[in-house]
């Protein structure tokens, strides 16, 4: 093999190795960090995996927010008006968090099917509803119509 060709081959091999490593690492990082969204009904029906990082969202149920008197622990229920799920969280809630408002939380389901959140996001302004939440509510409303149930106004 002549030197020029040999050099080219080395460069190509290096590039291939680099690309392979990059793609491998990226795919790994990617798989570790994809968080699927589940609405309360899906969680109640057992569709959501336990101990896997997921997102969940819906409306904060009226009167469901309970705070621990000594720490920043808080629990509340998130509902799509068909089912609801208990969310546990320790930390600071967003400014626009309130009962009757839409939230999206990231975290894991524990064995008791409670959602242990590491992050809670609320909407950014008064007129805005997180799209995941409005979709979840629509799905829930559609189911309710099929089953002939009444849906609360929100």
């Amino acid at each position: 093999m002549n030197p020029a060709r040999k050099r080219k081959l080395t460069i190509v091999l290096f590039l291939l190795a680099g690309v392979a490593v990059a793609v491998g690492l990226t795919t790994y990082a990617f798989r570790q960090n994809i968080n699927l969204f589940y609405d309360p009904t899906q969680i109640a029906e057992g569709e959501a995996p336990v101990n896997v990082r997921i997102r969940a969202g819906g409306m904060v149920e009226e009167g469901s927010v309970k705070r621990d008197p000594d720490s920043l622990k808080v629990q509340f229920r998130v509902t799509d008006y068909s089912s609801s799920v208990t969310v546990r969280y320790e930390g600071i809630l967003p400014d626009l968090f309130a009962e009757g408002q839409g939230v999206v939380a990231t975290g894991q389901l524990n064995e008791n099917r409670e959602f242990v959140a590491s992050e809670v996001l609320a909407k950014h302004d008064e007129q805005y509803m997180p799209p995941e939440v409005s979709e979840a509510l629509e799905r829930s409303a559609a189911r309710a119509r099929e089953e002939g149930r009444e849906m609360p106004q929100y």
Binding site: L25, A29, F30, Q32, N33, I34, N35, L36, F37, R53, R55, T106, E132, E135
Partner: peptide, 11 residues
């Protein structure tokens, strides 16, 4: 409906 977390980018 997925989201990709901060760790992906940091990593």
């Amino acid at each position: 409906n997925i989201s990709i977390g901060e760790p992906f980018f940091n990593l």
